[in-house]
Design a protein around this nucleic acid. Structure first.
Length: 509
RNA sequence: GGCCCGUUGGUCAAUCGGUUAAGACGCCUCCCUUUCACGGAGGAAUGAGGGGUUCGAUUCCCCUACGGGCUACCA
């Protein structure tokens, strides 16, 4: 019987837009929490004051909400483990840092940035291009390990800026049991004395993540694979602080990679290759630049989340389209991929298309209305309800509804007449003039009858129906797309039809 | 350089020692359709290399190669 309830957390830094990888980490947290009836906590890791961006926290909350993976606890919600912003928990970190110093597991370091730079230059060799602040060098630096009690007291009195560093033990092997990767071993001699408390009194990630995971009783910690190398520091901290039995189980998620080349997917790649990397539009408050989001690109949240879940995880069944509920049911850490996955925007669009096909008119209608409005098209609800089922199989993105339904509401601005000009002749002009005359008084609500009449006239004029029907479509719709022409006529009515054909005819003359 | 992680078609991937090595995206062909899609039927395309272990390795082990991550008073 499980006695402790599952508690997981998503802990982003409010430094900008919410990246694909971030949303996936949040999603896996959410799915795991739902599956085990646990709690999903949002914790804001705003310990770097230099990178803090106003508005980013609310933006993150909004993104999670759009994705339907809202947390149970967080800075904007109630919860018994707050505050949920690390900047508001400053006092506890200092307390733990001092405890570690007292225990002899951490120490004050007064080295200036210049002195650190000098150290790196001094110890840099070809075999060791980036020397670390570790057991080999710490006794040569300016810290409480190399100072007398009197010297230390003086520096502290003088308010000399200092950081607190962890003192990594010598000659130990740290074994981490990762839920995705299994046993991972580290030698403590290879790990440097990471800074725990910065000169400004803020903790670094290393101290904060341990203190908060403990305080918030996190049972399972998901994070990106880029954190694996610093995991031994965190394990040591759990041990030094005496909480080893409470340490969460770790799951280091594989990275989402660039579609081409190699490396982590970055915002630049999206710009370069023409797809978004953020969940929603993000406007940088300083530059005012807007980075495109999947939402604004025309993705359904269900599709976005579905696509993300399948990037690095699958349930083994071969099925790919799942609702959030189905994902939560089937989710299992054991089936998370170990290797990074290259992001494929084509496949992402396919997921969205599947979701558009799968979605009901009722769920699509408000989204389509908003999309059309954003493009200056005011659509009557009744008309929308008729059109959506006709065109939704032709849309990959919500924005495709603009092209696929604009002609129901307005005459095409620039019909692609070039497509028919080469084969155009006076016989066709004559045919259409005759057809216009004949259909002027027609009540156009019967697509089948219209089609039959059109074909009849074509054969009477000894013209191929196909060579007339395509021009008609282009005159009415603007291009080679859309549902059957005569169904379109039956919706836009004979008046609009006549007008569009006449306009086209005069341009073809 | 060091440490850590990884490696099945172009991409996402199944397989948990014995298979004709699934499926999906994309691509190509055909059918349906006098548009575009949807749908249907096919096709091309994969175990990085080398050693072991084993009756038998894509699967287990080792080495190499390659890719990635980390190596900040950023997360």
């Amino acid at each position: 019987m499980e006695t402790t309830s599952v508690r997981v957390r998503f802990a982003p830094s409010p430094t900008g837009g919410l990246h694909l990888g971030g949303v996936r980490t949040a999603l896996f947290n959410y799915l795991f929490a739902r599956k085990h009836n646990g709690s999903f906590v949002l914790r804001i890791e705003d310990t770097d004051q230099t990178r803090f961006v106003p508005g980013a926290e609310q933006y993150i909350i909004d993104c999670l909400k759009w994705c339907n993976i809202a947390p149970d606890e967080g800075p904007h919600l109630d919860g018994h483990f707050g505050p949920y912003r690390q900047s508001e928990r400053k006092a506890t970190y200092r307390q733990y840092a001092e405890q570690l110093i007292t225990q002899g597991n951490a120490y004050y370091a007064f080295d200036t940035p210049e002195e650190l730079e000098n150290m790196r230059n001094r110890f840099r060799t070809e075999a060791n291009p980036s020397p670390q602040y570790d057991a080999r060098v710490r006794m040569e630096m300016k810290n409480s390990l190399t100072m007398t009690a009197e010297e230390l007291h003086q520096e502290l009195e003088k308010k000399t800026p200092y950081v607190v560093r962890i003192k990594m033990p010598a000659g130990r092997e740290i074994l981490l049991n990762d839920m995705i990767r299994g046993e991972v071993r580290f030698q403590t001699d290879q790990v440097d004395d990471k800074v725990l408390l910065k000169a400004d009194g803020m903790p670094t990630y290393h101290l904060a993540v341990v203190a908060d995971d403990y305080a918030m009783q996190i049972t399972h910690a998901f994070r990106g694979e880029e954190w694996l190398p610093s995991a031994p520091v965190h394990v040591m901290l759990w041990e030094y602080l005496g909480w080893k039995e409470k340490m969460p189980e770790w799951a280091h998620l594989p990275l989402i990679l660039k579609p081409d080349g190699q490396g982590k997917l970055s915002k630049r790649d999206g710009d370069r290759l023409g797809f978004p990397v953020f969940a929603m539009d993000w406007q940088d408050p300083k530059s005012g630049d807007i980075a495109k989001g999947f939402r604004e690109m025309g993705f359904l949240p269900e599709a976005f989340v579905n696509m993300l879940a399948m990037l690095g995880w699958n349930d083994g069944s071969g099925e790919e389209i799942f609702t959030l509920e189905e994902l939560a049911e089937r989710f299992s850490i054991e089936r998370i991929q170990k290797a990074g996955a290259k992001f494929d925007f084509e496949k992402a669009k396919w997921f969205n298309q599947e979701w558009i096909k799968k979605s009901s008119v009722a769920t699509l209608q408000p989204l389509v209305r908003t999309t059309l409005q954003a493009n200056g098209i005011e659509a009557a609800e009744e008309m929308l309800g008729t059109i959506i089922p006709m065109v939704k199989d032709r849309c990959q993105l919500l924005n495709d509804f603009v092209q696929q339904s604009a002609y129901f509401f307005q005459d095409p601005a620039k019909p692609e007449l070039e497509l028919i000009k080469p084969k155009w002749d006076s016989n066709k002009t004559a045919f259409f003039e005759g057809w216009l005359e004949k259909t002027e008084a027609t009540y156009a609500d019967n697509a089948a009858a219209l089609e039959a009449e059109f074909k009849e006239m074509a054969s009477a004029a000894q013209l191929k129906v196909g060579e007339l029907q395509l021009p008609l479509r282009i005159m009415l719709v603007g291009g080679k797309f859309g549902p059957p022409v005569f169904e379109i006529i039956s919706l836009i009515g004979m008046e609009a039809t006549q007008r569009r054909v006449k306009t086209a005819l005069s341009e073809l003359a």
